Simulated assay, not measured.
Amino acid sequence: MKEQLIKAMQRNQFLNMMYMAKDGNMSKRRIKIIKIVGNSFQAYCFTRQAKRTFMIDSVLAVVPVIPKEREIVC
C-alpha cells in the first residue's frame, strides 16, 4: 500500500480512499497526498476540506481519480 501512495504522491494524483478510523467506522475520502512520514501520511481531504493525517495501516483501498475528458460533438 505504501508504494501505491508514494507513486500517487509523485504523480500529483487525486485518490479515492476507503479508510477505517480508530473507532472502526469506515469512510470514503477523496484525497491528495502531501507527504508520507513513517507509517502515516498527510493529505488534503476534499471530503472534510482540510489537511488530515492518516495511518497507512488503516487504508483499506485506494483508486486513482481519472479525470473525464469532455468531448464536443458537432
Results as ranks from 00 to 15, higher is better:
N25K: 11
T53V: 15
C74Q: 09
A8L: 10
K51Y: 13
V73Q: 06
Q13T: 02
E3I: 03
K68T: 10
K35T: 13
N39H: 03
R29G: 00
R70Q: 11
V37N: 12
Q10V: 05
L15G: 03
M18L: 13
G38Q: 05
K2G: 12
P64M: 13
Q10W: 04
I56H: 03
D57C: 02
R30V: 12
P64R: 13
I33C: 03
Q4V: 00
Q49A: 09
Y44M: 15
D23Y: 02
V59M: 05
C74V: 13
A43F: 01
T53E: 13
K68P: 03
A61F: 04
D23C: 04
I34E: 10
R11E: 15
G38V: 03
G24T: 09
K22L: 15
N12V: 15
A50V: 06
K22P: 03
D57P: 00
A61I: 08
R52T: 07
V63F: 10
K2C: 04
A50S: 10
G24R: 10
V59W: 08
T47S: 08
G38Y: 04
V65E: 08
K28E: 14
P67R: 14
L15H: 11
F46A: 06
S40E: 13
A61D: 13
K22E: 15
S58K: 07
D23M: 04
M17D: 04
V37I: 11
M17Y: 06
Q42V: 15
Q42N: 08
E3P: 03
S27R: 08
R29V: 01
V62N: 09
G24L: 03
R29S: 09
E71H: 11
K7H: 15
R11M: 14
M20S: 10
V65D: 02
K2D: 15
L15R: 06
A50R: 02
M17V: 12
R48H: 14
Q4D: 15
I31K: 01
N12S: 13
I72R: 08
Q42G: 05
